[in-house]
Each structure stands twice: as C-alpha cells, then as structure tokens.
Design a protein around this nucleic acid. Sequence first.
DNA 1: TGCGATTAGATCGCGCACGATTAAATATAT
DNA 2: ATATATTTAATCGTGCGCGATCTAATCGCA
Lengths: 156, 156
Amino acid sequence: MHMSRYVESPAEMLCFSLYAADHAMGRVYRPLLEPFGLTYPQYIVLMELADQTLPLRALGAAVGLESNTLTPLLKRMQAGGLVERRRNPEDERALMVSLTDKGRALREETKSIQACVFEATGLPLAELAALRDKINQLRGNLQRSLDPKKDPAKTP
Amino acid sequence: MHMSRYVESPAEMLCFSLYAADHAMGRVYRPLLEPFGLTYPQYIVLMELADQTLPLRALGAAVGLESNTLTPLLKRMQAGGLVERRRNPEDERALMVSLTDKGRALREETKSIQACVFEATGLPLAELAALRDKINQLRGNLQRSLDPKKDPAKTP
DNA sequence: TGCGATTAGATCGCGCACGATTAAATATAT
DNA sequence: ATATATTTAATCGTGCGCGATCTAATCGCA
C-alpha cells in the first residue's frame, strides 16, 4: 500500500526534475569550461584529483563512474597533458591517476567558475547547501535500494 | 562580492549532487525499463505524448531536447512501432509526433514503474514533492540565467 | 511578385554513460 | 605448488546530448 498516486506528466516527476536540472546545469557549465578545453566530467575529475593520487577504481567510486567511462576520459585528459596514468608497482592491476603540474595549474585557473555558477542558481547559499544535502540523501537512498548489502546503517 | 566560498571537492558541490543523483536515478530506472525495451529519455517521451500529438519542436521544449537528439531517438521509437512521425500538411516544416496504439498500450504497461521508483527514493511523498519543486525552481533560475530575454517575470 | 530572413528538422562529429566481455595480475584454497 | 577465484582495467557496441551545419518550407515586406 503506497501513499502515492500515479503521475501523468514528466513535469510532475522528481526524476524528470533531476534530469532536466542536471542538463540545465550542464548548459551553464559548458561555456564556462569550454575556454579551458574541459567537459563537465573532466572538471569533476580535476577537482577530485587536486590533492590526491587515486587508483582508477577509487576515482570512479568518488565520481560515480567505472572504467568503461573513465579510461577513455582519462586518456583524453592525458593527451591534453593534465593527468598521469601509471601502474602501481605494488599491484600491477591498479592504475594510479594523478594530476600533472599543468593539471594543477588548470585547476587554479578554473577556480573562478564556481562563483559564476553560484550566481546562475539565483538562490542563497544556505538554500543551496540544504538542497544539496537533501539531494545527497536521495542519492544515498537510491544507491542503497540497488545495493542493499553495503548498507552501513545495518551492519552490526 | 559573493556570499560564497570556494569549495574544494565535488562532494560539496550542488552541481555534482545533481549529476550523481541523476545517474543514480538512471540506474534505478534502467532495469525497470529494460524489459519494455525503453531507455529513460524514451520513457519520458512516452509520458509526454500520452495524451497529445506534438510537433517535434514542442516535444523538445517539453522534455528539454532538440532535434539533434530527438530525431534519432524518435526514429528508434518508430522502428519499435511506438510512435508515428508525419509532416503537418498545413506546414510541411513541422513534424507531428504521436503515439501509436502500441505506444499507448506500452505506457499503460509501464504504469507500475512509478511505485518502484517511489519506494527506491526512501522518502515520504511530501518531501519528494517539496524537493521536486525546489529543484524545478533551481532549473528555472539556471535557464533564465542563460536566456534572460524570455523571462516572463520582467516582460511588462 | 519576388527575394532575403526566419523557422523546422535532419545530419555529422565528439564525448559521456553503461552493459557485456576480455585479459592480466593477484589472492585463495587445497 | 598449483589450480581456481577474484580483482582491476581495457575494449566494444549502443544510445544520449549537444555544437555546428545543412536543406527545405514559410514568412515578410518592399
């Protein structure tokens, strides 16, 4: 018995609001990132690697992507001189990914982007933070619904 | 002067929470839609066309996509027998898109999906509705920041 | 009437996202 | 010690998303 009702149009659906807002965000970012030759997922990787070297797998866990997406993305970033990819000598399976000096410099250059995006949201910072937390809570719930085994709330 | 501060990691960024939550939602939908041979954008189109025939352009405005994405998507749906694509005799530029009987039947069949997604969110309906409205407000702000001309709030 | 501008879709190229599969390195179990 | 299982990236095929461009139909206006 669900306390729900059938929704008739995409406009009423939470999934669609996420989908459309994500695309709108992408359209805001695109012209801001284009001068730096970055796509949005590349920008996220740049942020994530700013202060650490990670194996591809851990990087993927952080950004929510797997090798089938990250391998070509990282190769493009490597071709642009932004990242280094080298095997871990202790475990030749693992590919350690880190920023080059050029990558770190680019991250510094892109620091002004955040303020532009903040402005484009048209919402006060406190609301944005609350919204982010709520969306993260939703994401956590969705992920747990797919993978109930790794639920830290239920591991005694 | 912005009442903001520089954020160091993707995990703190609203854009990333949207990006990741949208992907998580997609991962919930995928196995639910796969038995029907639908992708998520196709499912949205199916919902949008349920009770109306629309020119491609208007359909695109409703779902946030343009002809370069919709044309191949609709051709795949047409190949599956779900939609009809015919030119408007009054204006041969416009392509009128509508569901076939098979398309309407498929929409009926997919009605059970919503309850599964609702459950996966793990949030009460009132919170989902509030979150959706907040995200839609954000999306409206982002879109207006890109296209300030069509702002109904400032047209006298 | 005619011709330039506008509008609507279609097409192309590139990059992301993911299911499925593969190959190689490492862990394990006997 | 060796066979088996697991883990890690890479690869492949398909579909979405979008900037840029093209063609055709329609509109506007002198």
